[in-house]
Every structure is written in structure tokens, then in C-alpha cells.
Design a protein around this nucleic acid. Structure first.
Lengths: 181, 181
DNA sequence: AAGCAGATATATCAAAATGATATATTAGGG
DNA sequence: CCCTAATATATCATTTTGATATATCTGCTT
């Protein structure tokens, strides 16, 4: 089986809901799943080209006006490819936290530096948590709608983990200041 | 200011504690920080070469016996570079969770598929949490030692977040099964 | 003592992701 | 009418990832 690029699956997933251009896809990624997945023009546009060649998507319109805009539609083959990936229980989940990296090596400098890094992290998390809670409250009202429910589930993952981050921040600051648990 | 590769900082951070070979560095990354950061031979060895040229590290021994082994030592310049990075409060923190991606697009298939994906994730997390809790309990005894304290802080981040993951798993499974909050 | 598996050790490569930049068009506000 | 911001595609250098190649050494078994 050919190794699948993750960005391909993201694109197919989005196209399974609606026809989109590369630019639209980038916007959807940024607004809906950016807190746990990212995409860039640098991999979206080449992926669309490759997938068109492979018959997973079709371009269904191009430049209605003078402005160029290429809208893509998922094909049956693309849909099958998406489902195969969804059914495969293997999943790579990873975090990449520079804040933790700096903390781990914090011994090279005064504890005040580590404290500042944690506080910086804490503030960022507080802002993001506010946003995610907002999404969740709106989505909660429409759990009968499947699309909203799946969106709600991922957003609530964010809420749950960000709250844990804040809990950890308080604990970590205390330990750094007092050296106690 | 030159853009710094993250792997460079990881290597300098590790070398600030002890002299190491590229292979040693990979082992340290895998055993101590792999749950929030990764490294591969493919970027470690080239990074060591580049940093040696830039005067951030020195090779202090090579092939005592017939077996080739290059040990690196951090230089003053390397140490400064590490400290500059630590002092910079900017930090990129990102998660990349394929499980959430599959859940987000789960509507394309039966809910049983999403449930299976969550359960797979849950089992993985349970195992990892057990490990992290073990580390934490050992490290907790030595918070007076700075190195152990910084290690403890990062490990306890893992414990806190993994516990939140499990809490979310239970909630998510309930919603998928019953459609309620 | 021979043989073999597994750990040690460095190196390299294709593929993928990242982040930035280039280019051009269009819509809306002042 | 001009300017800014948003729309839209495309490309590129840099970095990371994951796999593989090559060779040595250690410890265990037979």
C-alpha cells in the first residue's frame, strides 16, 4: 500500500463536505483544526495537483471571471481512500512543545527565566482556552447534527487539555518558587 | 540574528550536561524527552557537523579503538547560544494528533469506527501514563536536585495532560454512543 | 571456539512539512 | 481615485522524518 501523505487525508476530509479551492482549504484548516493540525500553501497546492493526477479529486471549475480560482471536488476513488485511512486504527499523535524543551534545559540559567517562560505559555493558553470554550458552547447546542458533534468532540479535547495545562502551570510555578510539591 | 534550528538547541542543551556522541544524543532524546520532542539521526549528525564548523561544539575524542566514535563537547560560544535561546520567551508549541483528525472527519463512516479509534488512543495513553507516573514518583524524591526537578516538571506535564486525555476519552465515547452531554 | 543476535555508531537519502516570498487580482473604505 | 486588505496560486530553501546502508563490538548459546 502506498504511503499516504497526511495532508492528502486532510484535504480529502474537507472535500468530503464541500467543494473547495486550495485557498479555501487553507482557510478551513486555519479556522477549524489548526489547534491540532496544520497545513501550508507549500504542501496544499502540490498535494492537490498530485491527487488530481491520481484521480482522487477533480477540478470542477476554473476562472469564472478573470480571477483564477480552481475548485476541486472529491471523486469516488478519493472517497474510498479517505475511508480506508479512517478505518485504519493506527494513528501518529505527537506534541512538540518548545516551552517544555526550554524548561527541561532551564538549569543553565536562573529559575526566573524558566518562570517567565511558563508564564508566557500560561497567557497564551488562557487566550486559546477562552476561544475554544466559546466554540464548544455554541456547538453543544447542536449535538444532534453529526458534523457539529464531531467538531464539538475535537474542540472539547482542546478545552480539557488546556485546562490541564493551566493546572500544571500553577503547580510548576509553585515548585520553581518554593522547591516543594 | 540567524534562524536557529531546534535540533541544535536540543543538542546544545544535552551537551551542557555532559559530553556525548551523536548516537548518545539520540538515546538521550528517545529516553528523556521523546514524549514532547523528537530527533533523528538524519538531523542530529548533520547538525553536529554544522555546529562544529560554527564553533558551537568541539570534537574531543575519536576512535580510541578501531571502532569509530566521535564525542562532542559544548564550547563557550555554544553555551551562549543555548542561553540566548532559553532567554527568548517566544516558543512554538504544537500538537499533531492524527486521532483528532480522524475523529473530525469521522462523519464519513459509522460511529463505531470513531469509537474504535478513540479506544485505540485510550489504550496507548493508559500505557504511556503508567510509564510517566513511574518516572514522576522516582523524580519527586529528589526535587532538591535541580536537574531532577526540571525533569520532574516536564514529566508531570505529561501526567497532567494524559489524565485529561483519559477524562476526554470517557466523555467522547459517551457522546458518540448516546448523543448526549 | 564458532556463530549469531542485538546493541553501538556514523552516514546518507528520498519524501514530507514548514515558512517565506513572489505575483496578480479584486473588494471596500476613505 | 487610491490604498489596504483579502483572495488566489505557485514556488523555493530549509528543516524534519523515517528508512536504509555499512560496519563494529558484546554477550550468549551451542
Amino acid at each position: 500500500m502506498a504511503r499516504e501523505k497526511k495532508i492528502d487525508m486532510v484535504i480529502l476530509g474537507l472535500l468530503s463536505h464541500e467543494d473547495l479551492s486550495g485557498y479555501d482549504i487553507k482557510k478551513r484548516i486555519d479556522s477549524m483544526i489548526s489547534f491540532f493540525w496544520k497545513g501550508s500553501f507549500g504542501n496544499i497546492y502540490p498535494a492537490l495537483k498530485d491527487m488530481e493526477e491520481a484521480g482522487l479529486v477533480n477540478r470542477i471549475s476554473e476562472s469564472d471571471s478573470g480571477r483564477e480560482k480552481i475548485i476541486y471536488k472529491i471523486t469516488d476513488k478519493g472517497s474510498e481512500s479517505l475511508k480506508d485511512w479512517l478505518k485504519d486504527e493506527q494513528a501518529v499523535n505527537e506534541i512538540r512543545y518548545e516551552t517544555l524543551l526550554k524548561l527541561f534545559f532551564g538549569g543553565a540559567l536562573d529559575k526566573a527565566v524558566s518562570l517567565a517562560n511558563i508564564e508566557q505559555f500560561e497567557n497564551k493558553v488562557k487566550g486559546d482556552l477562552r476561544l475554544l470554550k466559546g466554540y464548544c458552547e455554541n456547538l453543544k447546542e447542536h449535538l444532534d447534527n453529526d458534523d457539529h458533534m464531531y467538531y464539538y468532540l475535537t474542540a472539547s479535547f482542546g478545552v480539557e487539555t488546556y485546562e490541564a495545562y493551566l493546572k500544571w502551570c500553577m503547580k510548576a510555578k509553585k515548585i520553581l518558587k518554593n522547591g516543594v510539591v
